[in-house]
């Protein structure tokens, strides 16, 4: 059993880049291998933090959407109130996508109605979202 899968990925990536790549013959393979190594490091970070980041996004979006229910289509309440069924990546991604679509909807409406307060709220979320998902493993 590997309890800390993210660390395992980082170690394997380091081993590949430091010990295996130098033995490759072509520049193409070395460059490709190096790129894959960097991506594996980024995936390690995502494995450690990805679900947490998405759940934070979901809570953030729920708060904004609940404060602006006018522009939401019928049936949206379930998305806003229902807890996640589980924390599998697919489940969390699905909810994240559904809420993001609603967010786009109300942002469009806020622009049309010149609701600067709601616009600022949404841009604030987008900024927090972007900060949460910064990829540092690839220079």
């Amino acid at each position: 059993m590997i309890p800390n899968t993210d660390n395992a990925l980082r170690m394997l990536s380091q081993r590949m880049m430091a010990q295996l790549l130098p033995d490759l013959k072509s520049n193409y393979s070395i460059s490709d291998g190096f790129m894959i190594g960097l991506l594996v490091n980024a995936i390690a970070d995502e494995m450690a933090e990805g679900i947490h980041r998405r759940v934070e996004d979901i809570e953030d979006m729920r708060r904004i959407l609940k404060s602006a229910p006018d522009g939401l289509p019928a049936g949206s309440a379930a998305l806003l109130d229902a807890p996640l069924e589980d924390l599998r990546l697919a489940t969390v991604n699905e909810r994240h996508d559904a809420l993001t679509r609603l967010l786009i909807l109300i942002q469009t409406r806020a622009e049309e109605t010149d609701d600067v307060t709601l616009q600022a709220e949404i841009w604030g979320y987008l900024r927090r979202h972007a900060a949460r998902h910064v990829i540092t493993a690839v220079p």
């Binding site: 960097l38 987008l126 910064v134």
Partner: peptide, 26 residues
Amino acid sequence: DSILATAGWVMTERQNRILLEYLAPE
């Protein structure tokens, strides 16, 4: 190709931050 994965993930993330700086009200 690994460059497709890099572009699709890393570049999208960075480009989103660039657009944020262009468009966010502040």
